[in-house]
Amino acid sequence: MWIKRRFTIDEIVEHNKYMKTFFFDETIESSPGQFAMVFIPGIGEKPFSLSSKNSITVEKRGKFTQKLFQMKPKDFVYIKGPLGVGFRNKDYLAVAGGSGIAPMLYLINNAVIKSLLYGARDNEHLIHGIKDCVVYYATDDGSYGYHGFVTDLITEDLVSQHSKFAICGPEIMMKIAAEKLVELGVEPKDIELSLERYMKCGIGLCGSCECSGRRICIDGPVFTYDEILEMQDFAKFKRLPSGKKQKII
């Protein structure tokens, strides 16, 4: 069961211009892949994956994350969590894109990732120094690691060394990754993906995060690929804050 309470920021790790990890003074009993609603009074409340029992790892985007990036140790936020269901397996080959690295850091912390394929727009958006698993980097502009999409790094050789797969990142990237894994003989039930939809309540009431009838905040955000194959809106439609459906491009 989740709780909502005030947490103090203990330490902030600045990975680069766009990515920071915020550590809190207390831990949240949780598992990797679960998320939390983070509330800054007077500013707003947004969903973030836990990147460990007491942290979130955030990419700077709009109003809320900009405010978060201005915060200092000893400042406080409210955290409602842990929410949703997380990853269920171990010994993963993980594929992460952009801020999709956040739940992977929690998995790495729990020593359940063997290999990580990690891609971002450019070197400025990558987190370096990830330990305890083999990391293969990719950047869209070639400024670090492989020049191209992270999904290109999925090879038959790597796949054959793993039996479980975890994917988190932009939805189109996740679709390409999952399809490639299946082509290489992986069973859809052995692939887990973490989905994102617009969240309001975060506790299963409002339906805002709906994707093909599943409320992502409470039935997910992590689903196995065989469940996702039944979700026709996956990588096709998402809902806007009004509830209007929009094509994913």
Binding site: E45, K80, K200, C201, C206, S242
Partner: peptide, 23 residues
């Protein structure tokens, strides 16, 4: 409708200010 947070819970009290979002 309203921006987040639109739900607040404290103990048995649940409050919402979803504010009639609608397509």
């Amino acid at each position: 409708g309203n921006e987040n947070p639109v739900i607040h819970q404290d103990g048995d009290i649940l409050m919402n200010s979803v504010g009639l979002s609608s397509p």
